[in-house]
């Protein structure tokens, strides 16, 4: 039930922010469209911990702030490789092991790797990720360890708490 309330709040905020016209008729239409979205989401069975992960918003926002700094740091080598006269690149395929347990944490970790310029996740199998890197020397398993640990902490540990609260 908490997931439905989170979804209603987010959809309402999205509608209010995108519309800008607040007459009674349009507010009624907004309510109808939000209800329609909820019914469709319930029929698709997507309103669960993955479909509405708003309970751990503070942790995820903190993780994003750290991630954006990392992305901007990782941009420099790729920009240099793009404009340098001799293409000094060293592409490689690397296997990375992750400690993330839930699918959501794995998704966030894999997407963070892809979002960082210079590394792209090609395949996810169990707890192993196949990563294509632009520079082999930058893509050591140690360089992914911190991101792995942070994405696991931002989702998994709190996730168990959230499930206990909901079931209780």
């Amino acid at each position: 039930m908490g997931y439905f309330i989170g979804l209603i709040v987010v959809l309402g905020a999205l509608w209010l922010g995108l519309s800008g016209i607040y007459t009674p008729l349009l507010l009624i239409l907004a309510t109808i469209s939000i209800l329609l979205c909820l019914i469709l989401a319930a029929r698709l069975e997507t309103v669960d911990r993955e479909g509405a992960p708003y309970a751990r918003a503070p942790q995820i926002i903190r993780y994003w702030c750290w991630l954006i700094v990392e992305i901007f740091k990782a941009n420099w080598p790729v920009i240099k490789a793009c404009v340098s006269a001799n293409r000094d690149i060293n592409p490689a395929l690397v296997k990375v092991k992750t400690q993330c347990e839930s699918d959501l944490a794995k998704t966030i970790f894999a997407n963070s790797i892809t979002l960082t310029p210079g590394t792209v996740t090609i395949e996810v199998e169990g707890n192993k990720l196949l990563v294509h890197a632009l520079y082999e020397e930058d893509a050591t398993p140690e360089s992914f360890a911190e991101m792995d640990e942070r994405s696991r902490r931002s989702v998994d540990r709190r996730a168990t708490d959230g499930n206990e609260q909901v079931s209780a």
Binding site: I71, F72, N75, V78, I79, C82, I89, P91, T114, L115, T116, P117, G118, T119, V120, I122, H132, L134
Partner: peptide
């Protein structure tokens, strides 16, 4: 193709 993917991610992010 795979190295082009890295270059395209500059546009997507920064």
């Amino acid at each position: 193709f795979y190295t082009r993917l890295h270059a395209a991610s500059i546009t997507d992010t920064s």
